[in-house]
Design a protein around this nucleic acid. Structure first.
Lengths: 339, 339
DNA sequence: TTGTAAGCGTTATCAA
DNA sequence: TTGATAACGCTTACAA
């Protein structure tokens, strides 16, 4: 590693521009009360020197830093990565960096670990993905630590400054009503894990739609998975044994929907001829399987962008967009109910 | 947001313990020359106060910071996330944090963007995933910026201090020889994208094995994909039209292998009865599809751990483990060649 | 073994 | 509109 030549500091800029460092600081911070000529002169020196302000020093003087954290304990890699990308859409070009922090919400040290992390890194703010975002103790901890936070979740979970939410329940209801419109009467459900708010909302949307049309969701027609392909596969095998067989299955995420598709193929069912399948998420897997899955699109990337914006500007966080629409994405895994 | 009560500083600790702050600094930095009694007294105050040293201040004084970056432009979410987790295995418990920085290596601003990011955040070090890790200009830039780096790649790409590598070529050769041992003679290949070193190595391993047994890899028996399910699916459809049909297909990653499986099912082939499929990566998808895929396990998590260690301790980076074994993981998608 | 003084690169205060 | 001076919380000389 070659010795790194010392980086130019604010002092170098000040000296070369023949001004005080406070004045240089003013151009860095875009202070309005500054002679235009002075500003340009300094800017020229900055460009010339390739000067970049040291964020650690700024952090120290401002008593805040420029790190935004992403807290998650999410089984789905694609979802987590999409969220990271969404946040970076907004963070790029600012002086903020994104630090990631997966956690194990089942660990007994969960709260202590994460508190230590926030304290130690003096995070400016964090975006919390479900299901961690549903943990009220954790949110309390953030408040106590004075760490800005935004939760990803459902409406009314928190105030607008601390929430980005999507209307999953309604979106699922509409999607299922579409299935009902296609003639489906026996619709089964591969549900998400117990304790996940997201799982609850999606199931509730299904029940809403069925109830609105006087349809039933019998006892055995709901089997719970863990949002993984494997668990979805097991659930689907069980559901497909029901007699009379369901003509449609709604799975609480795409990965499990892909598993349903698989299970259907295994017993020689045609999709959507014999069985319609509806997923949730609109992750790449939905488009990749054959036939491509109809699914409810969950705008997590836009939500992540919004969350980043709230974290960058906590003062106006409450005024920024908090609600997003999930919507049916029609592909080829849904069709008329078999006669 | 409640006003955050000011965090205790080194001065508070010093005052309460009745020592100078330099002495407190000594216990923070585990200096050996310190009276045991003094140390304990100070430690008690630290614990009592819940004091955590401010990393920004340390960064400023030490002229280094505690951020380690992950640079990638990788199409596979699971791979990226596993790498993040591997790095965090080592970073957790240290004062380092992981900042993520996906890039677009095709962008004309690629080098400028990433250079600016490293400069601005004053990163301590970065771990570079393929295919970005193969970009020599970028590595040159890191050196010029005095930023420690470790590349994920293949043997002999760099010296031990800056590399973690796996023996993919040999591992593939061995896996393919296993297939040959099962009687397969017509083995086709869904290759990775051109320009990816990883794709090259995997294909080379296949060619090595075939050559060693006097077998041929005809022109049309290699179709290139982009490591995505979709591209793998298209490639597989093409390969399965070859007459006489291949009895085995090796795909350069699991996602494409899963797509081959799918394509096979579509035309009613039994796997592994009519067609054996071999993947690469050993990501969860390999275990989740049916039948579960035989694949070459790529120890990316262990590699990421090793890379993190090298970055945390750059002085001894060259002495730490740099080489990892990829190995055949046998599941159910491979079997004897059809008669 | 411990303490003093100076400095890391920035910003806030307050005066000019 | 600018600048001098004192922070910010820590570490490194160098002394004691």
């Amino acid at each position: 590693m070659p010795a790194r030549e010392p980086k130019p500091t604010i002092n170098d800029v000040a000296r070369l521009a023949g001004v005080s460092k406070k004045t240089v600081s003013r151009v860095i911070n875009k202070s309005p009360l500054l002679n235009q000529a002075t500003r340009e002169k300094i800017q020229a020196v900055i460009t010339d020197l390739g000067y970049v302000p040291n964020p650690q020093a700024r952090a120290l003087a401002l008593r805040r830093n420029f790190l935004i954290g992403l807290i998650h304990d999410n089984p789905n890699a694609q979802t987590v990565l999409t969220v990271q990308e969404g946040m970076l859409d907004e963070l790029r070009g600012t002086e903020f960096a994104l630090v990631v922090h997966p956690v194990d919400r089942k660990s007994p040290h969960f709260l202590a670990d994460i508190g230590h992390f926030i304290e130690q890194q003096r995070l400016h703010g964090i975006y919390i993905m479900p299901p961690v975002s549903e943990n009220e103790d954790f949110v309390k901890l953030c408040r106590a630590l004075g760490c800005h936070y935004v939760r990803m979740g459902s409406p009314r979970m928190d105030d607008d400054a601390h929430l980005v939410a999507s209307n999953d329940r309604e979106a699922v209801r509409e999607a299922v009503e579409y299935l009902i419109g296609l003639g489906h009467r026996r619709i089964a459900h591969v549900a998400g894990p117990g304790g996940f708010r997201s799982a609850f909302e999606r199931e509730a949307g299904l029940r809403d739609a069925l109830a609105a049309h006087g349809l039933d969701l019998p006892e055995g027609a709901v089997v719970r998975g863990h949002y993984t392909f494997e668990s979805g596969h097991a659930a689907a095998r069980q559901l497909l044994k029901i007699d009379p067989r369901p003509t449609a299955i709604f799975a609480a995420n795409d990965e499990m929907a892909a598993a349903v598709l698989h299970a259907a193929r295994e017993i020689g069912l045609d999709v959507p001829g014999d069985l319609s399948i509806l997923g949730f998420d609109d992750t790449p897997i939905a488009a990749h399987v054959w036939p491509p899955l109809s699914t409810v699109g969950w705008p997590i990337r836009a939500m992540a962008r919004a969350a980043a914006l709230k974290l960058i500007h906590p003062d106006t966080a409450g005024e920024q967009r908090s609600f997003f629409r999930s919507e049916l994405v029609l592909r080829a895994s849904t069709g008329p109910a078999p006669a």
